[in-house]
Design a protein around this nucleic acid. Sequence first.
DNA 1: CCCCCCCC
Length: 771
Amino acid sequence: MFKFVTIAPKNQTFEDMAMVPSAFFPIADLSNYTKGWTIRVRVTSKSGLRTFQSKNNEGGKVFSVELLDCEGGEIKASLFNNAVDNFGEMLQVGKCFTFSRGTLKVANRNYSTLSHRYELTFDRDAAVTEANHDSIIDTMKLHICDLRSVQAKILPANVDLCGVVVSFKAPHAFTSKDGKDLVKREIVLADDSCSSMEVTLWSDRAQKEDKEFEGNPVMVIKSVIVKEWGNGRKGSLLETGALLISPSIPEAAKVRQWWSQGGSSQTLTALSDGAFVGGKAPVGKSACLSDIRVASEQATFSEEVFSVVCRLAIVQTKKQGEEQPLYYMACMELKDGNKLPCNRRVDSSGFCAVAPRFNLRCKFSDCEDSTWLTTFHEAAKGALSMEAFELKDLEQNREAMEAAIRHSYFQQPWIRAKPDHYNGESRTNVACVDARPVLLREHGRFLLKEISDMIVASCSSPPFADTLGSCGSLADPSSTPPDCHGREQVPDVASQRISVFKAVGSPTGPGLGEHAVLQPLDPTRGCVPTSSPAEMLAQGSWLEDSSRLAVGPEEDITQPTKLAVSRQSLTDICSSAVSALQPSFPGSPWSGTTEDEDCNQELRDVFFRANSKATRVLETRPLSSVSTSAGPTPSLDGRQSPPQQWSPAPPSSCVTPVPQEQDAGRSKAKSPSQVRKVFVGGIPQEMSQDDLFTFFSEIAAVKKAWLQKFNPSRGPKDEAGVAPSGHNHRGFGFVIFYDGTAVDELIGNSPSKFFPLKDGRGRLEVKRAMS
DNA sequence: CCCCCCCC
């Protein structure tokens, strides 16, 4: 992955080579156990001087340098106050010095781009002398990484790049929101991994003459911070970094050659796509709530933002019987420097202008999972479609307040959620950073495309290879409907029908949609006649968003069978396609417009295309994670639902009213992912995440599998979380199956089961996951 | 002892 490149100074002599550096301590070995060390180093970068007000109100000043020694060790050093006076002028980039009498402390990962576990600080005791014999120390150390691998990095990432300047903008001067005058210039770099990324240069580097950027020069840029921006990734060259134009290093020559021998006309994969759909934060990856759960369990430093269409299920109004505050009074004064309100909590005396701001814990649900998200003011306004003062107006009456909140339950926002970070530490908490109305048209089309793609995929691959596997192993054959398998052998195109199901469930139960009852709905109209959520609630039930698409013979579905487990993504795509396309859905932009008809046509097209290919796609997940055996899905009262008439039903009658779940609100039920998740121990270091996935895929359909990495915050900086000993993971991991019955099959009632590895190198221990 | 990687 990393290429190790060093840039040697010119005129390196034999004498230099022969000079034994043993008198000097290797930077790489410095730690806070090292005493009496002296290092001999080259300054490879130097920051500007900063002044500050320390906590005891004394003024201070500091600047920092990066130091490189002859063995390639690098460390950051900060010089304070007296050291600034004594050595500030003397320390210049490119020159060599000996340093001693400094203090070592564990490096703060946030502020150091180097990989050293420690950093140095120097103050009045510091001893720094200029050294002459400097030529055995390289002038710079690069860890060049190609752009394609930047795409896969956990963000924010710090990388060194070597690429061709494929385009550049003019320098642009502006004032930041903190009042700083800044100049930036954006360039686009491309390399022989056939990828390109936008990188922002600052101040002097931005103000180099245009001609420096003309003619597709190769540039090496060291210390680029890569972040998610818009729908892509974008780099920014740090002050401590370096910009080399057309350097004489092998990497530059290689990229140059690639460019001149056809690279310039190749199609490049662009990592940067600044386009926003709206709003300031990144739109994020389209996901399900279970993806958020998995990401938060992994506790990485990922900045990934997830974009989920889901429903607001519950707001935490009480915690262990205690009423929870739903908003707080915040200072509305504008902060100096920028025009944003300071939002600090103020006491009841309120010395400055105050306004209520939401601070909620909200549970959101989608077709697969539910998750609690910290939901601050802006996002809460969107999720509740309510202003905080509307709630405060009811403060005399708590019940009215809670009722007002409940009124917003089952709204379907489009949220963006982001793992919460605090001082650079990743926390298991996830925050909802934004909630806004679903862009129904856009979302519906997106889903339609997925449906379409899946239908194509399921037609081209052996139909139901995986389904049959699952069906065979997971279902009780005696209770499987007889024609479930028979039909697949000889598909009778003419008799195939497409059915759209919606699952009807109670919103209060765990994992919304358990105890679901299937309703065949009208395929010929291409849309699902349904009641509005308000009507459903009035009936004491709710048309849950986990609608399913099933394509199959009519008779298969008129018997409300529990359908075989197959493709997970089918669950995903159906989760909102139908509601997004419901003309009757309140507020739908399609309502009563010609778009209404357009979208129905699209839906019809997709369904009929599927129909003509005689595809049979069955249900993807057990509709009840309580009952996992195959066979008829019982309705709530324990009776089998009667066969449904295959005819369009008027909206109000197409949904069977379902009584409120008796055990609504029970709290001990496992979430769907817990039921389907196992702990795997005894994993050899050579086993990769993909191997883990493959291993268990041979047993049952695996949704996700991952290895537990070392916590990067607890070790030397290494974004891959690799421990110093070269271990790739902690020897254990987790697997989530599509279906909880896989876990039952695997483990049964035993505390754990062992699975030998094929190559005889030990065995894996599988247990039920604790959470 | 500090800065918190700048902007759209």
